[in-house]
Amino acid sequence: MDMANSLALFDKKLEWHDDSENINELAAILEHMPLAIVQAAAYISQRVPRYSVSQYLQDFQRSASKRTSLLNSDGGQLRRDGEAKNSIIITWQISFEHIREIRPTAADLLSLMSFFDPQGIPEVLLRSRDRESQHDGKDNDDDDDGRSDINARHSDSDEDGSQSSGNDGFEADTFEMHGLVQLATQQWLKAGKQQERWNQQFVKNLNAEFPSGEFENWESCQGLFPHAQSAAAQRPKKKESLEDWASVLYKAAWYALRMGNGVEAERMSVQVMKVRKKIFGEEHSDTLHAMGIVGMSYRLNGQWDDAEKLELQVMETSKTKLGVDHPDTLTSMANLAFTWKENGKEIEAVRLMEDCVRVRKRVLGVNHPHYISSCIALDAWKAE
C-alpha cells in the first residue's frame, strides 16, 4: 500500500485527528501495512483524549519491547474492528507456523533474515556455514546440533514477508524483509527458545563475509555495514559467538573510522574492547588492537585526553609484551604521536614520531608504506 492509501486508511479510522505530520511519519514507520495501521488507529482511538498520535509514535520508537507490546494489543475497540481481528504479531506468527509446517527451509530463511537490517540482505549471507544440517524440531538455545539448511532461494523467500531483488548474477541477489515482520519473527523465535541460536548463525555468517576495512574492500563494507549495525544491537551470549560478534564489530569500526564516522567507530569499538578484555584479558594482542581503534575514534571525536590515556596504555603494554621492534608497537607509537600533535603537545609528538621513524626504517625498510607515511608526517610537523 502506498502513502496516499495509508493516509486514507488512517483518515477513515481516525476521523477526529488533526495531526497530519505525525500521521505521515507513523504510516511510514508502520511500512504502510494495512493491518498495522488499523491496529494503531484502534489503539489510539480507544485511549482518546488522554492519548494521541504523537504519543503512539513516541512509544513505538522507544524500544523493540514497546513495539511488540503495541502491536500485540488486541483489546477493546480492536476486537470490534472487523478489519483487525488479530494483532499483526499474532497474525504473522500464525502464518509463520504454517510456513514452518509446509516449507521448513523457508521458515529457516525467514528466521535468519529477521536479524539483519531489513534492506539489502545479500544472498551469500543466508547460506549455512555448518557442515551438517537437519530438521529435528527440537532446536533450542542450548542445542547447537540440528542446524537446518538455509540455502533457500527466491521461491522459498517469496512465501511471506520477504522480497528478492538484484540482477541475474547469483552473488548479486539481495533480499528485503519488512521490519514489523522481523519483529514478529523474533518474538516467535524467542517464545520457542530459538532466538539465540539464529542470532549466533547471523553473527557467524556476517563475520565470514565482512572484509577488513582496507580501501579495496570499501564497496563490500558499505553494503554490509548496516547489518553490522544491526549486529551491534544483538549481542550473543555464548563465548564462541561473542568472539565472532566482536570480530564483526571490529572490522565495521575500522571501516567507520576510515569513512570519518567517529561516532559509529567509537560505539562499535568500545563494545569490542570490553568483550575482548573479558575473554582474552587486557594484554592480548586482539584486545590491544581494539583499544587502538577506540583511541583513534576518541581522537577523531576530539576526545584528546581519553585518546591519549588509552593510546599510552596500548603503547606501553605493546612494548612490554611484543617488544619495541614489533609492527604493532610501532603503530601504537605513531597513533599516540598523532594524538599528542592534535592535542597541542607538539614537542612530545615530534620526539615520539622520530623514534617511530628510526625503528621503522630499520625494521620495515625505506620502501614500506608505514615508514613513508610516518616520514611525511614528521617532515610536515617540523616544517610548521
Rank of each mutant, 00 (worst) to 15 (best):
L9G: 03
F10D: 00
K12V: 12
E15S: 14
N24M: 13
A27T: 05
I29Y: 03
E31Q: 07
L35I: 10
I44A: 02
S45A: 14
R47D: 06
Y51P: 02
S52N: 09
V53S: 00
D59L: 11
S63W: 05
A64R: 09
G75H: 06
G75E: 14
G76P: 04
D81N: 09
E83V: 02
A84Y: 06
I90K: 10
T91Q: 12
E97Q: 13
R103L: 10
D108H: 11
S114N: 05
P118D: 07
P118E: 07
E123G: 08
S128Y: 01
D130M: 09
R131L: 10
E132R: 05
Q134C: 10
H135E: 11
K138Q: 14
D139K: 07
D143R: 07
D144R: 11
D145I: 15
D145F: 13
R147F: 10
D156V: 03
D160G: 05
G161Y: 08
S164F: 13
G166Y: 06
G169S: 11
E171V: 12
H178Q: 15
H178R: 15
G179K: 06
V181T: 12
L183M: 09
Q187I: 09
W188Q: 01
L189Y: 03
A191N: 14
F202M: 01
N205K: 01
L206M: 05
L206G: 04
L206F: 06
A208C: 08
P211R: 03
G213T: 07
S220H: 14
G223F: 13
L224V: 04
P226H: 07
P226C: 04
A233S: 11
R235A: 04
K239I: 13
L242K: 15
L242W: 14
L242A: 12
A246M: 11
S247E: 05
K251I: 01
R258V: 04
M259G: 00
V263C: 03
A265L: 00
S269P: 01
S269R: 00
Q271F: 10
L288G: 00
H289W: 14
S297M: 02
Y298T: 03
D305F: 15
D306W: 02
D306G: 06
A307P: 01
K309N: 15
T320W: 13
T320Q: 14
K321I: 15
L322R: 04
V324D: 15
D325L: 04
D328S: 12
D328N: 14
S332C: 08
A337T: 06
A337N: 03
W340F: 10
K341S: 13
E342A: 12
E346W: 15
I347Y: 11
I347G: 03
V350N: 01
L352I: 01
V359I: 15
R362S: 12
R362H: 12
H368D: 11
S373R: 08
S374F: 09
S374D: 09
C375I: 12
L378M: 00
